[in-house]
């Protein structure tokens, strides 16, 4: 189960840099962990701390008044680069549940959906306007059942979520369970046909 996401409201962190890649979000050397503990400690590690371990106060995630923020307003290309799902785990472990940006890395988007991290795509101009509001301390909120995204109680946009996706966020379902519970027979019957069409793919079994 990932943490259910139904209705949340908080201030937002603004990180407008373009192309924040997953190496920046979660530096490779921490990938040696074999569990999912302590992910938040690694989040943006080399931006939050300098090489001597000194806290970098200017970095947005270090702002004392944003430590309980659940929203992140990011720049274009957020999450590009490496496929590491740790980037998503670190964000959610830190407390971020929603990221707003003009676009996201494709693999990052797939990983986000599997971990209850909601991504909202919005053109560069509107994202910049939201970033300014985030700086000012506006209250961001989402209501997944109602598909609403508001800032200071003003609706920004409808959430573009299918019923199945909304249900997954609300219930905290993991995709693996959904597939195992609902799709096994479909997969088995596809596989039988596939085996007769392309037998060489099964030759070593």
């Amino acid at each position: 189960m990932s943490e259910p996401l139904v209705r949340i409201a908080s201030q937002a962190i603004s990180l407008p840099d373009p192309n924040v890649d997953t190496d920046i979000i979660f530096p490779a050397r921490f990938l040696l962990k074999i569990d999912r503990d302590g992910m938040a400690d690694c989040l943006f590690h080399d931006r939050r701390f300098d090489a001597d371990g000194v806290l970098q106060e200017a970095f947005p995630f270090n702002r004392p008044d944003r430590q309980t923020a659940q929203f992140l307003v990011a720049g274009p290309g957020f999450g590009c680069g490496s496929s590491r799902e740790q980037a998503v785990w670190a964000l959610t472990d830190w407390g971020i549940r929603v990221v707003i940006a003009p676009d996201f890395g494709d693999i990052f988007s797939g990983n986000a959906a599997k971990n209850g991290l909601l991504l909202i795509r919005m053109d560069a101009g509107r994202t910049a306007a939201l970033a300014a509001k985030a700086e000012r301390g506006a209250i961001f909120s989402v209501d997944v059942p109602a598909r609403r995204f508001t800032v200071d109680n003003e609706e920004v946009c409808r959430l573009d979520l299918s019923d199945a996706m909304a249900e997954a966020f609300i219930e905290g379902w993991e995709e693996i369970d959904v597939i195992l519970n609902r799709e096994r027979e479909h997969i088995a019957s596809f596989e039988a046909g596939h085996r007769s069409r392309q037998p060489w793919l099964f030759a070593n079994e």
Binding site: S83, R84, E85, Q86, V88, I107, G110, N111, K114, N115, E174, E175, I176, I179, L180, E183, R184, I187, F190, E191
Partner: peptide, 21 residues
């Protein structure tokens, strides 16, 4: 051929299928 995250690696091993766009 496409890159996936750790959750999807688990899904492929368990179910041999993935939801893709």
């Amino acid at each position: 051929a496409f890159g996936v995250g750790a959750s999807e690696c688990g899904i492929v091993m368990a179910a041999q299928a993935l939801v893709q766009r």
